[in-house]
Design a protein around this nucleic acid. Sequence first.
DNA 1: TCATCATCTTGGTATAGACCAGATTGCCTT
DNA 2: AAGGCAATCTGGTCTATACCAAGATGATGA
Lengths: 235, 235
Amino acid sequence: MDTNTHFGRIRQALEEQITSGVLPPGARLPAERLLSERFHTTRVTVRGALNSLEQDGIIYREDRRGWFVAPPRLVYNPTKNANFHQMAAEQGYAPDTSLIEAHRIPSTPQIQQMLGLPPLSQVYRLRRLRSIDQRVVLFVENYIRADYFPDLLDHDLSQSLSTLYQERYQTVYQHVAFQLYPVALPEQAASQLKVTQGSAGLLISRVNRDQSNRIIDCDFEYWRHYALVVQAETT
Amino acid sequence: MDTNTHFGRIRQALEEQITSGVLPPGARLPAERLLSERFHTTRVTVRGALNSLEQDGIIYREDRRGWFVAPPRLVYNPTKNANFHQMAAEQGYAPDTSLIEAHRIPSTPQIQQMLGLPPLSQVYRLRRLRSIDQRVVLFVENYIRADYFPDLLDHDLSQSLSTLYQERYQTVYQHVAFQLYPVALPEQAASQLKVTQGSAGLLISRVNRDQSNRIIDCDFEYWRHYALVVQAETT
DNA sequence: TCATCATCTTGGTATAGACCAGATTGCCTT
DNA sequence: AAGGCAATCTGGTCTATACCAAGATGATGA
């Protein structure tokens, strides 16, 4: 790290405080104005250093609330069909899902293409927000074939979908195709995740098939970029 | 997009120019000072908008050279063992690899652990820079078991390693374990990729085994974050 | 012809302020 | 005790300006 600039010095100082454990995961950092005084510099420079640490996943921000030390990343293995609650629980986190909205709507061209549906087909659209240890980390949109899952909306939608499919519809995820790319979080995802629109995120979109190789749903997962590491093995 | 701020207006204006094709992939954007005049604002604000577009992978910067329109992302399928040259060529890009350095060195504890080696073992370390269509997109460090590949350094190391393994050592990649996470690019990767230290990147680290399930090498791939989309399928 | 150096242009870093808007908090009223 | 309101705190956005360092360029000289 280049310590010839204020930028670099602030970055390093904060990084040391964090890795040494003086500032534990979840702890709040001093306010930007306070930091700029303490380092004899300006807010613009301090924000540069904070942004850089945020890029690295060491800290994260909540809009107009402050900066916090980021906990270790969640390990996400898309090849294992793991559901969110199970995955988080196995790694010692306290997961939670809240349902934002659930509707039966006409499918859009994009969704028709992903699900292999004809125009005017009906799908369920779920929007849900997921957190680990009280930190929101994931905003997810599910699009589900309505014809395969009658009365889906009558069930508890804050649980894992894979569990619901299995218990009520005798359907399991068998095959997953996913794409993963770094993006700037779009407006809705950003506001739900309480970050500024345009900040870094990871978009994972998946198309899921059941035991009969029928496409049953697809989803768009918007993750806070520092919240996870994706891991997989193949032969 | 919020067009009530200069930030949002600049973002949108540039985005339109790009998606409409007025500014094609690879084109250079006007200088920051010029943009700030044209939008009746300051460089600080312009840079905010440019950073946001960069996050989104719509534009990219080269240190002290300027801002450019980003071409479509390279599709990277880690499960297919595709080598870089083959993968890029299949998608219509002109790939290139340049060797930065190649040495036989004592392994570090981290590498020993990843490769399952005892202390003091010798490994080759390759550092290479890869580009598509003249744009550097990937800085990669390979650590290779020296005992499995005698005289490796005598060969042409700007080609694909998997090709070299196969043709000269009768060894093929059989099993890959990889981890993928968004990071801020560390110093060396950033300078090689001609971006500012601390800017967004994607780190993919892999541990590769051969047809006998022996660990033969591992690598650390530092990608410019906008340069690729990771894609995979599983059953 | 080719290497070198000065100059210009570019983004990178920095100062020193300012106002806005959402989140939090605590007092004050009912 | 509960609700509402206002003060205060936070980060978000912005102006205006300055100097630095590396890349690009073209004139100069061997």
